[in-house]
Design a protein around this nucleic acid. Sequence first.
RNA 1: CGGGGAGUAGCGUAGCCUGGUAACGCACGUGCUUUGGGAGCACGAGAUCGCGGGUUCGAAUCCCGCCUCCCCGACCA
Length: 565
Amino acid sequence: MRLSKLFFTTLRDDPADAEMPSHRLLLRAGYVRQLGSGIYSLLPLGFRVNRRVEQIVREEMDRIGCQEMEMPVVHPADVWRASGRYDAVGPEMGRFKDRAGRDMVLAMTHEEVVGLLLADIVRSYRQLPMMVYHFQTKWRDEPRARGGLIRVREFVMKDAYSIDRDEAGLDVSYWAQHGAYVRIFERLGLKTIAVSSDVGMMGGSQAHEFMVLNPAGEDVLVLCEACGYAANRQVAVVPRPDPPQEEPLPLEEIATPGTTTIASLAAFLGIGPERTAKAAFFMTGDGRLVSAIVRGDHEVNETKLFNAVKASGGMRPAQVEEIRAAGMEPGYGSPIGAHDTVVVIDELAARSANLVAGANREGFHNRNVNHGRDFQADIVADLTTAMEGDPCPTCGQPVILRNGIEVGNIFKLGTKYTDAFGATYLGEDGVAHQIVMGSYGIGIGRNVACIVEAHHDDKGIVWPAEVAPYAAHLVSIGAAREPQVAEIAERLHAFSIEAGREILWDDRDESPGVKFTDAELLGMPWILTVSPRSLAAGGVEVTERATGERSTRSIEAVEALIAGG
RNA sequence: CGGGGAGUAGCGUAGCCUGGUAACGCACGUGCUUUGGGAGCACGAGAUCGCGGGUUCGAAUCCCGCCUCCCCGACCA
């Protein structure tokens, strides 16, 4: 490709809106342009990288016998009503009416369509197991897009679906996908950690997220450097030491003016926060007020709470009036005497005796509150969030917390979607059985951004060879003075097209400085310089972008390098 | 949706407080010079100052409303 004809432009100044390196560099180097919040165009360079990434994903999916297909972006709403997600999902889903007034949705994912297809296509156990996948645009109207391509609203996802006879078969498919993911991210040049994760809106029994560590990551990971334990903080369960065994003492109301926080309460009474109980209040999407009780030295994990109460339609912090309506006082709240609320207590708080808890009266707390005697929770569950230094659940060593970006996930779905669409198969026993599904996603654009996050320097992008849009960046200098320069550049360019691995040729009439700077910004793995000087030295100067290492090679050697790129 | 910030030429900004001919750098066009690390000189093109309304003789600037974008939080590939 001749750079003079490439549909792009580089920017000398950083765009003001771009904060993350990947966003800044992809804009500056002319790979992408923004159309709206979380909506991007891929310019030819960006599109080529996307295709390279897709190709790696495709090869690894094909390798495990996953079959490529394509499902639509626009779905009739009834398909989503059948699974219950039309109502469960909320404003994140794009909805509109077609000209006949029919409700339609923009696909966020494709479990429903797969379920429907399975009901149509699968008859017999002889057809199973199978796996299918496609690359397709998703629209997710996220509350907030951020970080350039890291979190967008429209994006292409590779989503794969496994189709099995039973849980055992699902397990095999699941780990086959897991293995493919390990190879994919390895080839993409991404260091990932597979963490146990929440099943979220997908539903299901087991899930892993593949994470790259990044300070700007939106997930918090709980990691153990001693044994390799890794989990999303949303689901990490950390063992809590037994609280001291005490006889319950009589309940006693005490004045605690101005102590609306645990810190101020503990300081006022001269006790540790672990001797107190903390109440947090939430409203679920299905209209229930949830009162969550944890010990004062812990934080409520909203994912665990959400799952414990089997909420649907999301969950938000409750408002003051809502809390008062249930007979509780914000800042001094506790379930004692409360009504019209679902009380959930953390299992550790439940077995901790004689805690200080709110008296539901401004300026007062109760001493010696004991679960089971003074109030009865509706649900007892692990509700606490893992903190840095908590003991690892598998080996007991202190865990660390790190931010991560989710570049892929795998879910054991079970029969949720096949049930919804009546997708069954006839077993060897002649009886209909439920088909068991799994689902497996990789966001292509996010992976591109993560590759740049991991592979750049102060001069620009440094693409791993497997994903680079071109095998090399050819810089010709002094073509006007020395006809042989243009001749050799033409030859290498033509060769690369012939070899099926094109190079990018900067054929512009620009100063050498401009060309080198742009070459480094664009980030091809090799920079090839043809000039009177290089010819005098015996050929083409070859610079490795990643290391800056230079050497002069013959034309033939450079052709071999291109062909191998 | 809550909090914070910003919309002036393709990009980065100044001007706004204190109303009076829209400015600068880069990029872009033409010509000459230059040609291994973001070249020089000259000439030139490019902006209804986010949109709408108001105040005023006069609005980028003051007032009101709206839209959009970015960042921080609640959600996810």
